[in-house]
Write a protein that binds this DNA or RNA. Sequence first.
DNA 1: AAAAATATGTTGCATTTACAACAATATTAT
DNA 2: ATAATATTGTTGTAAATGCAACATATTTTT
Lengths: 154, 154
Amino acid sequence: MFKNLRHYTDTLNYEVEKTARVMRILGMQLFEKLNIELLLDEYVALDTISCNEGICQRDLAKLIIKDRANTGRILNSLENKGLVTRFVDTKNNRLVRKMAITENGYKKLISINKKVESYIVETKRIVSEEEIEALYTSLKKVRERFEELIDFKI
Amino acid sequence: MFKNLRHYTDTLNYEVEKTARVMRILGMQLFEKLNIELLLDEYVALDTISCNEGICQRDLAKLIIKDRANTGRILNSLENKGLVTRFVDTKNNRLVRKMAITENGYKKLISINKKVESYIVETKRIVSEEEIEALYTSLKKVRERFEELIDFKI
DNA sequence: AAAAATATGTTGCATTTACAACAATATTAT
DNA sequence: ATAATATTGTTGTAAATGCAACATATTTTT
């Protein structure tokens, strides 16, 4: 009847959501198992700041796929833990709050990476690096084209 | 330093999460634009019930990637709207609540599908059917292997 | 020059979501 | 046979998330 429509559970949409959930659970279970003191989202923010020194909050929000409010909250937590510093600066002549990773933040990041690395190597026995790489590339290509269709109001 | 580690924003994990978010926003924007009276998740449940007549709640939960509690709540809503009926039955000698789509539910599903179809056709101009198909297949394969590593306590 | 629109971050609230505890029943183990 | 464990669904609660409103400052439009 609807030859262009599949049932939802047979769509790419569904497969992407399910994969996202599986991967998130994998990540959280790993963090618990390794007794890592940061939340997964805090780690993601910290890592992203570490390779985007002097980024402002809004740009960070876009990168870590959170809204501005929650990004601010994650940063409060990281700042309270002394892993990140925030300072006022300008961007396009506007006042913004920029941030940078602290010495302790960097140490923490390295310590977590060290703990995690062997497990990442492990997963390559489950799915080959080439397979992951190919999937990453084509998924990104498709995502970027779909992204043009929406307005990402962050 | 960590040759097996990328920054999070360069990982498959990140790409999957971002794609999931983009697709979810696309879906919700479509539902709003077309003035569809159901929530996206309610539609997903209704569609899934329609091709799994007599499914029990827990199995539905697994399919629509929600926990049992929220699946129950979605079903309450669908039942209140007269789109789904629930009845007690047995499965492996245990009492379970099974469900089926009603006449009105089926009409609603067809009406939504009719509204949505032309937009689905539209997206095939953005990304070809073959590309979607290939991505779907390899994503599913990878997801299934990762899924074996977690315990999906639903 | 005044008004409107835009960019940025924060606060508060409402919705969503996950998770644990519970109740009822059935299966399995001792 | 009794106890322990497992399955299923509901309820309650805490956490996460998103969204709208606000404050401030700057740019653009009229």
